[in-house]
Design a binder for these strands. Structure first.
Length: 618
RNA sequence: GCCGACAUAGCUCAGUUGGUAGAGCAGCUGUUUUGUAAACAGCGGGUCGUGGGUUCGAGUCCCUCUGUCGGCUCCA
């Protein structure tokens, strides 16, 4: 119908949305008693929420639904729009037993919108902006299926491109965990079969890179039922990754005047009552019981309150500011079991946390320095950054006056603009004590994750009555700038492992050099040992594979573990003192196979590791 | 926490309508002394995640718990 003058994006959107209707058509045919929720377009496709009562649907039912959808598509039913008065619409929903639709329509009638941010306005038969006098609502009909919908749709069910149903999962009605749970059926859809295949191939690739799979294969971390869910254990190899990342982050901040501090992992609950965290996150703290005192202790879920106490430990002059603390440390949060997964969501979270206490006139300088540090870090790590300005919304989830918030939000935006960063703004994403600059990294497959964060906070210093003396001898509250460059090291690792597919650059690779012996003769073994020692003295992580196996097999083993440099040592090398290193393919700039003296080679690799390059100069 | 699926050897998996477990890789031992992605042979290894139930008999059927996965909700 309205597909003329539409951009390809709009057309694809209409296709996906039409597919949601077609899926609902197919499900209604197979299960006439189904109650429908909403069926919007999502990133790569669409879904529809349905309620089939107790029996429900399982993934085994998807092929049958897909087949039915193909029938509907083959029937090429035109999509027809019509409208009816809202009271008539409500009567329709009632009569059809569509209780969810009825609820939506009633909300619509009452307030002109479904109020919450839960429903995409397109789902409804009206535009939700503007006045609340809803007289008529819009419907779409294809064949004998009718759905409340504003559109637009494609002209007929035959014009929907290529799709595939992916999975069925649970979803709360209108996104509220107090509401009944429906089943959500997800599909992906593209304009052409080719794009669909490409998308599915991308998903396959993502599966291969899954950090949980690579964590297993590359021996990076493990879990134990005895230790518990969300508490990964890092092997020697995985620990190297953690420590190298922490070291990098610490270096960047120390260069900017941050000083390391240390704070204990348990604290009196009172600290968090004062900060406001107890009221907001009390049910997510691990409680610790003392057998000696009557105080209640908790595992620390974050560090800001501790750092305020270091600041507050003595009088501060305006000349002392900024005072900057960095604390790369583990915090503990009792995350709900269903939210845990791999390294992306854990209960022991290591943050590269830092707090700068500064004067108002120093805010800009602090933020600029941190933005620059983040830029350097992600440049080195090879991840693209995009900035999200996370503001508060009108809910009561925040503390502090609106004026302070407005001023803080303005300053963050000014800083981001001054640094020419690519940004977007989002309300309702702020921390409860202040707005944030959140940095989203895009990985090798184009997926986005929140990593670094810079937060401006006028509230915490007030709550802890922090002060410094200004040049007129007047007490002033400092401003706190919270920052984490990596965010959570565990979560960052999950992103980074998948981004690199486990092919870590030499500076962070758990094993940087592997020496393979051609035979087990004593001279060879001794020579290999000597080279390994030399490498260790240069600060390299090196291992020797002296197994009684073929060279081919040992090469393969090194390759499988994605070791950057493999040195095969035999008679030739012993005689000449020269070697042609085997370099992991992704690091190679030019293809020429060159030989080097072993001394020169190791020094170059050590230098590369130190300067954190991603390609080799060999 | 909620909805759904899953849990067999270190890893990846097979195991027919219920009749007390198999393969490949890895490991160990021996032979071989290897030249750039998998030499050959032998051996060891599993109270089938936990606890309970049904049954003459449970890896297989039912329940509980734990854990994992896909989502929802949440994320200082």
């Amino acid at each position: 119908m309205q597909e003329d003058n539409q951009s390809p994006e709009q057309q694809l959107h209409a296709m996906r949305h039409s597919l949601a209707h077609i899926m609902a058509t197919a499900i209604t045919r197979k299960f006439p008693h189904v109650k429908l929720g909403v069926g919007p377009v999502v990133q790569h496709g669409f879904y529809y929420d349905i309620d089939l009562g107790k029996a429900g649907l399982s993934e085994e039912d998807l092929p049958a639904i897909e087949a039915e959808m193909k029938k509907v598509i083959a029937e090429d039913q035109p999509f027809e729009q019509f409208s009816m008065p809202i009271d008539e619409a409500i009567a329709w929903a009632q009569q059809a037993g569509q209780t969810y639709k009825e609820e939506l329509l009633n909300d619509l009638k009452r307030s002109g919108t479904t109020s919450a941010k839960d429903i995409d306005s397109e789902e409804l038969g009206v535009a939700t902006d503007g006045d609340s006098q809803v007289a008529n609502v819009s419907f779409y009909r294809n064949g004998d299926f009718t759905d409340l919908c504003r559109g637009p749709h494609v002209a007929s069910t035959g014009k929907v491109g290529a799709f595939k149903l992916m999975r069925v999962s649970g979803a709360y009605w209108r996104g509220k965990d107090t509401n009944p749970q429906m089943q959500r059926i997800y599909g992906v859809a593209f304009a052409t079969e080719k794009e669909l295949r490409q998308h599915l191939a991308l998903l396959e690739e993502a599966k291969k890179r899954d950090h949980r799979k690579l964590g297993q294969e590359l021996d990076l971390f493990v879990s134990s039922d005895l230790v518990g869910a969300g508490l990964p254990l890092f092997t020697p190899r995985g620990t190297v990754l953690r420590e190298e990342l922490a070291r990098f982050s610490n270096e960047l901040r120390e260069r900017n005047g941050f000083q390391k501090v240390f704070t204990p992992h348990i604290t009196k609950q009172e600290l968090y009552e004062k900060s406001g965290h107890w009221a907001k996150f009390g049910d997510e703290l691990f409680l610790v019981k003392s057998q000696e005192t009557s105080d209640n202790f908790v595992m620390k879920p974050m560090n800001c309150p501790h750092h305020t106490q270091i600041f507050a430990s003595k009088p501060r002059s305006y000349r002392d500011l900024p005072i900057r603390y960095l604390d790369t440390t583990t915090v503990y949060r009792d995350e709900k079991t269903g939210e845990l997964g791999g390294l992306s969501r854990v209960r022991a979270i290591t943050q590269d946390d830092s707090h700068a206490f500064c004067r108002r006139d120093q805010i800009e300088g602090e933020i600029n320095a941190l933005l620059a540090a983040a830029h350097e870090m992600y440049e080195t790590l090879g991840l693209q950054l995009q900035v999200r300005l996370s503001y508060r919304d009108d809910s009561d989830a925040y503390i502090g006056s609106k004026e302070l918030w407005q001023s803080a939000q303005n300053q963050l935006k000014a800083a981001v603009m001054a640094n020419n960063l690519d940004y977007f703004e989002e309300e309702g994403e702020a921390a409860f004590y202040g707005p944030k600059i959140d940095m989203m990294a895009s990985d090798a497959l184009g997926r986005q994750f929140q990593v670094a964060t810079v937060q401006l906070d006028f509230v915490m210093p007030q709550r802890f009555e922090l002060e410094y003396t200004d040049e007129h001898g007047v007490k002033q509250p400092p401003v706190m700038v919270h920052c984490a460059l990596l965010g959570s090291i565990e979560r960052f690792l999950s992103v980074y492992i998948e981004h690199t597919a486990g092919k870590f650059p030499v500076w962070i690779a758990p094993e940087q050099v592997r020496i393979i012996t051609v035979n087990q003769e004593d001279v060879t073994t001794r020579f290999a040992g000597k080279i390994a020692q030399q490498a260790r003295e240069l600060g390299l992580r090196v291992s020797i594979d002296n197994d009684n196996e073929s060279v081919g097999k040992k090469i393969r083993a090194a390759e499988v573990m994605k070791v950057p440099y493999t040195l095969v040592i035999g008679e030739k090398e012993m005689q000449t003192g020269e070697i042609t290193p085997r370099i992991r393919r992704d690091m190679v700039v030019n293809e020429t196979q060159q030989s080097y003296t072993i001394d020169e080679l190791l020094k170059t690799v050590a230098h590369e590791a130190k300067s954190r390059v991603s390609k080799t100069s060999l």
